[in-house]
Design a protein around this nucleic acid. Structure first.
Length: 491
RNA sequence: CGGGAAGUGGCGCAGGUGGUAGCGCAUCUGGUUUGGGACCAGAGGGUCGCAGGUUCGAGUCCUGUCUUCCCGACCA
């Protein structure tokens, strides 16, 4: 194993995999397609969770928890939903093991077969709507605004750390409303919550839009999404919010009595983001030296590395360092002082660079003399000397600047990788060179969408919200079109 | 499920035509070091995926089997 990462130019996906492992974010496990999220990676996920959770609560939601197992029969109630998930469900058929009578090890006890198989949830609409039936009698019981933080399992054929794993962590919001308008409003509100979180905290610019019928969530009437663009020109769906209409209410017989005394089916939404956001984070900001973290997500925003000879010098440096730690904490900066004697400074520099720590302070004997520190920025790889007395004022401002600068850089990248195609030749050339988002006219049919996918692997990422109306002709069929939609190859 | 490749210390790999396993990184000990992944000396760790077979002898050859990875198909 070499000391350096494979570069993005050499092999983008190899770069990604090496980075995830070397930055100590996650690793493959003994279970096919399932990963171990390591403490450093999980610390980032916890920050994502904490900020999202705060936003959910600010918009009136509460957390709850529903079972991991769902009786098989629940899945037969909503036809399009089961179509979407049937091929990737893990099924529990037995509840007991026993010693193998023929030799060593254990076997599944054939006598312990379940009457009805249990499905490990791929998503929780069915069990939640089965429960909501009991919760909802009257319009006074509405709305129900619930979120769940959970793990789900989808038996994917090909997996990649964070981007697509068989088991993943996510949150799923499931809401119930008295009116269609209110449910649509909820779905749109949550899309806004996702978009502002991803842009403000993760520093990733996103397109907001709706999915075409072909790309819609199984069981939804409308799927809203946010789409991000990765450094290799491929799109990544970063979050979805679904308007489910009355499909699940009808499937699970969830009705309420209106003010007027009539019985009506409840309107629903669901919305989710997952550990896949970690993949988006990595692929948006990182470089050939490793991870680059936006300050608002970094487990520690600043790391202090002492450079010393002998205990006496370390003691003198530690005095300064500990004082800086206190000052920085007092102004809300998270900081780690790494005074381990087991690793050399150069090793630490490389390690923290690989792990994307936004700012690094080095303090050595020269700094003690001059009353300064060396301050290095991860995103630009630049260094400057700062007076020790200025550290606590310079750093908060610098962290803000880094946060903004990462977003601006990603936005600029997206703008440079967003194109307009007016002919099939143009379209094909752009897509096949992984040029990024391509705005093109489309005749609105699933047949054309599928054909374009067959020909180029590009999918319609979204129809942007507030899209400009523009007369044109479909890039493939030449049929009339009233607006451009956004195509790209995607993860 | 189709096509390809691979299973050898923790990780990454080497081991033409059979002779009982080695390298790099990592780990441990001692010492010298510490402003961009230190150096020297020493040490520990592997029934070579599994099961058969051929042979005096199998990491190596044969058969079977399991698993993983890559490319497709599939994928909110």
């Amino acid at each position: 194993m070499g000391k350096h990462l494979t570069t993005r130019a050499e092999d983008y996906s190899k770069w990604y995999n090496e980075l995830v492992v070397k930055a100590d974010l996650a690793q493959n496990s003994g279970v096919r397609g399932s990963m171990v999220i390591k403490p450093y990676g999980f610390a980032i996920w916890e920050r994502i969770q904490a900020d999202l959770d705060r936003r959910f609560k600010e918009t009136g939601h509460m957390n709850a928890y529903f079972p991991l197992f769902i009786p098989k029969s629940y899945f037969s109630k909503e036809a399009s939903h089961v179509d979407g998930f049937a091929k990737e469900c893990a099924v529990v058929t037995h509840y007991r093991l026993k010693n193998d009578p023929d030799g060593n090890g254990v076997i599944v006890d054939p006598a312990a077969k379940l009457e009805e198989e249990l499905i490990v949830r791929p998503t929780s609409e069915t069990i939640i709507w089965d429960t909501y039936r009991d919760w909802i009698q009257s319009y006074r019981d509405l709305p129900i605004l619930v979120n769940q933080w959970a793990n789900v399992v989808r038996w994917e054929m090909r997996t990649r750390l964070f981007l697509r794993t068989a088991e993943f962590l996510w949150q799923e919001g499931h809401t119930a409303h008295a009116t269609k308008e209110e449910a649509i409003q909820e779905a749109e509100t949550m899309l806004d919550v996702y978009a502002s979180f991803v842009e403000e905290i993760m520093a990733i610019p996103v397109l907001r839009g709706i999915k075409t019928e072909g790309e819609r969530f199984a069981g939804a009437l409308e799927t809203y999404c946010i789409e991000a663009l990765m450094q290799d020109g491929k799109a990544l769906q970063a979050g979805t919010s679904h308007f489910l209409g009355q499909n699940f209410a009808k499937a699970f017989d969830v009705k309420f009595q209106t003010k007027e005394g009539t019985q009506e089916y409840v309107w629903a939404t669901s919305w989710g983001v997952s550990t896949r956001l970690m993949g988006a984070l990595i692929m948006t900001h990182s470089d050939d030296n490793g991870l680059v973290l936006p300050p608002k997500l970094a487990p520690y925003q600043v790391v202090i590395v002492p450079i010393y000879k002998g205990q006496e010098q370390l003691d003198a440096i530690s005095e300064v360092a500990n004082d800086l730690v206190q000052q920085l904490r007092a102004v809300g900066v998270t900081v780690k002082y790494d005074d381990r004697d087991t690793q050399k400074p150069g090793w630490k520099f490389n390690q923290y660079e690989l792990q994307g720590v936004p700012l690094r302070i080095a303090i050595g004997p020269k700094d003690l003399e001059k009353g300064s520190v060396e301050l290095a920025r991860r995103d630009t790889l630049t260094k400057q000397f700062v007076s020790q007395s200025d550290v606590a004022t310079v750093i908060p401002a610098l962290l803000d600047e880094i946060q903004n600068s990462l977003f601006e850089k990603a936005l600029k990248f997206r703008e440079e990788h967003t194109h307009v195609a007016n002919s099939w030749e143009e379209f094909e050339t752009l897509i096949k060179s992984n040029a990024g988002f391509v705005h093109a006219h489309w005749d609105g049919t699933t047949e054309t969408e599928d054909k374009i996918k067959d020909l180029t692997k590009a999918t319609i990422r979204c129809i942007p919200l507030n899209n400009n109306e523009e007369e044109g002709t479909c890039v493939l069929t030449g049929k009339p079109s009233k607006q451009r939609v956004v195509f790209a190859r995607a993860y």
